[in-house]
Each structure stands twice: as structure tokens, then as C-alpha cells.
């Protein structure tokens, strides 16, 4: 554990240094890819607090992304409220909804795949609800009007502004995630994931903790939703509440290593550049080729490295250490 703390600090430091000097050297296209990497890393880290630490696998996290995106964008387009404020209102809204959903599900003992199903249903219901409200754009969605380079309205000329913004968000998210996991709150979440009855018997208020994890995760995801809307300047119900974003939010955490601090970041860092570059090579001809790649990687990951990239890494590391310290003492298994 001690090593982990130091490693986190070093890695965050490295990310900071590399991150902040990158736009000086990279072209717009590579900055765009970096924005995507950071954005999905951020979302996966947010999902991971509920899905990875607490072990409650939400398959409808786009619900919160959509709430964030729609709240800030609606307030911006209708009353001209800056997304810097709208973002927090969206976060608060998502937090309230998350708390309500969490309370309902966990109060009634919804678990495992059934929790996944409830969250899918909620996100899908949101798609249809938003589609049928014309005043917030209906099926057409909402466009974020371009007002020129206006940092006070979260709009930047060129991509570096967005890049720095999501870099800071990701660093804060990773820091928060690594901070949470080494305190009581984090350990208790893990204990719920590992064995809920045992945790409850040892004084862990599992209901309250699961709701808290849902709220934190929902708020973070919603903040990401605002960034998404500002960066892509256009949102519609399927694009932010649909099953597509729901899967993409958790995909990188699963592939990188679920329940670990760095897994979600590693997953996005490895997979997105490959997907984006191969899309560049294939040209726009193959709609769906990128998701096809994600699906294939997901299936292969589950079959051949069920604990993700970091799991595999630790396995090799673990074997190596075992051999060093106690010969072949694996008969305990």
C-alpha cells in the first residue's frame, strides 16, 4: 500500500509535467486525441468509484453524463448562464438524482446484474423523456452557440484550452480517487464489493456508503458531461444518455483494470489512441469500425486478462515477487 501511495504521487507528477508541456509540441489532431484520452479517463475514473470500488456496476451512467450536459447547455442557451456555473448545477442535479436512485436500489436490495438492469432502464427512460420535451431540443438536441474565444463561457479558440481544462479535471479526479481509497471510506467501499454481509457485520453502514459512492460518482460524471457538451458543442438524447456513452464510460475502466486507481487511465491511454489513429487510417468509410474494435478488445480482455491490463501487470509482478521471497509457496491456494 505504501508503495502505491508513492507511485500515485510520482505518476500524477509525471502526468502533470508531460501534460502541461504537450500542447507546445503537438499539432491540433494530437491534442484532440489527448483530449479524448483525458475525457474518457476522467469518466472511467468517475465510474470506477461506484463500479470498481463499491462493486456496484452501473451500466447506465450516461444518465448522469446527460444530466450534466443538458443542465449546463440548457441554462447557457436559454438564460446565458456561464457553463462554469451551469456545470456545478448539473453536478448538483445529478447528485440528487444519484442519491435518489441509490437509495431506491440499495434500500430494496437491488444487486449485481439487477442493478445493472435498473441503471440501463433509467438511462433509456431518460433518452425517451428528453426526446419528448421540445423545449430542451427534443430529438434534435441542443447546440452550444459559438461566441468566439470566451474562456469565461468555457469556450476556447483552438483545442489547447479544452485540453488544459480536461487535464486539470482528470488530475483532480485521479487524485480524489487515490485519496479516497486509502482512507476509511475507500476501504469500506472495497469491503462492500468483496463481501457485503461480512462488511455489514463489522459495522460498515453499507446502505449509506453505497449511496454516497453513487452520489460522488454521479456528480463527477455530470461535470464531465458539461465538458463533453462544451467541447463537441452539440448534444442530443442518444449521444449523452444512450447506451453508447454508458458503455464508453465504463469500457476503459474494465480494460485498464477495474477497481484500481490507475486502471481507468491506463485503459483510455492504451485504447483511444489506437482507435483514433486506426480511424484516421481507415478514413471515414467504416462507420462503426471504432466501436467494433472496442467490442473486440472487450471480449478478448474478458477471455484472456479478466483483471484488465493492470491485473495482468500485477500478476507478472506478483509471480516474480513470490519467486523471490518464498520459493514456490503457492500450495496455499
Amino acid at each position: 500500500m505504501k508503495i502505491q501511495i508513492k507511485k500515485s504521487t510520482i505518476l500524477i507528477g509525471l502526468l502533470l509535467i508531460v501534460g502541461f508541456i504537450l500542447p507546445r509540441f503537438a499539432g491540433e489532431y494530437y491534442i484532440h486525441i489527448s483530449v479524448l484520452v483525458l475525457f474518457y479517463a476522467y469518466m472511467a475514473v468517475s465510474w470506477n468509484i461506484l463500479g470498481g470500488y463499491a462493486g456496484q456496476h452501473s451500466l447506465g451512467h450516461a444518465l448522469f453524463m446527460g444530466i450534466g450536459a443538458y443542465t449546463s447547455t440548457y441554462l447557457f442557451t436559454v438564460i446565458g448562464l456561464t457553463p462554469w456555473i451551469g456545470m456545478w448545477l448539473g453536478g448538483a442535479f445529478a447528485g440528487v438524482i444519484g442519491g435518489f436512485v441509490g437509495y431506491l436500489c440499495f434500500r430494496y436490495g437491488v444487486k449485481g446484474p439487477y442493478f445493472a438492469l435498473v441503471t440501463i432502464a433509467l438511462a433509456e427512460a431518460a433518452v425517451y423523456i428528453v426526446t419528448n420535451i421540445p423545449s430542451i431540443g427534443g430529438a434534435q438536441g441542443l447546440e452550444v452557440a459559438w461566441t468566439g474565444n470566451a474562456p469565461q463561457l468555457m469556450q476556447f479558440d483552438g483545442k489547447s484550452g479544452y485540453y488544459y481544462m480536461i487535464l486539470v479535471m482528470t488530475i483532480i479526479a485521479v487524485w480524489l480517487s487515490s485519496w479516497l481509497i486509502k482512507r476509511r471510506f475507500g476501504y469500506q467501499l472495497l469491503s462492500i464489493r468483496e463481501n457485503e454481509d461480512a462488511a455489514e457485520a463489522l459495522g460498515v453502514n453499507t446502505l449509506r456508503l453505497k449511496i454516497q459512492a453513487t452520489v460522488i460518482s454521479a456528480v463527477m460524471t455530470a461535470l464531465g458531461g458539461t465538458f463533453f457538451a462544451q467541447y463537441f458543442t452539440y448534444i442530443n438524447p442518444r449521444a449523452v444518455f444512450g447506451e453508447g456513452p454508458s458503455v464508453q464510460i465504463l469500457l476503459f475502466a474494465i480494460i485498464g483494470g477495474i477497481g484500481t486507481v490507475w486502471g481507468p487511465v491506463v485503459g483510455a491511454l492504451v485504447l483511444i489512441p489506437i482507435a483514433e489513429l486506426s480511424r484516421g487510417w481507415l478514413g471515414g468509410t467504416f462507420a462503426g469500425a471504432q466501436i467494433l474494435l472496442y467490442g473486440t478488445v472487450l471480449v478478448l480482455t474478458m477471455l484472456f486478462m479478466p483483471n484488465g491490463i493492470l491485473g495482468l501487470y500485477h500478476k507478472f509482478l506478483g509471480k516474480f515477487q513470490n519467486r523471490q521471497s518464498d520459493g514456490g509457496k503457492s500450495e496455499a491456494l
Binding site: R184, Y187, L190, S191, N195, A198, A201
Partner: peptide, 27 residues
């Protein structure tokens, strides 16, 4: 529990810490 209920992917120390947190909130 009659059937032992460890936290399998946590260390033995962390297993016991979950109990200890009940009266010692500080890690």
C-alpha cells in the same frame, strides 16, 4: 459466520482494519 467470510482480494491486515475502523476512523 459459520461459513468463513473473508474479503478475498484485500490483505489480511486490511481485512482486520475493516473491523478496526468501527471505533478508529483514522487509518
Amino acid at each position: 459466520f459459520q461459513i468463513v467470510q473473508p474479503f478475498p482480494d484485500m490483505t489480511v491486515l486490511e481485512n482486520v482494519m475493516i473491523g478496526a475502523y468501527t471505533h478508529h476512523p483514522n487509518t
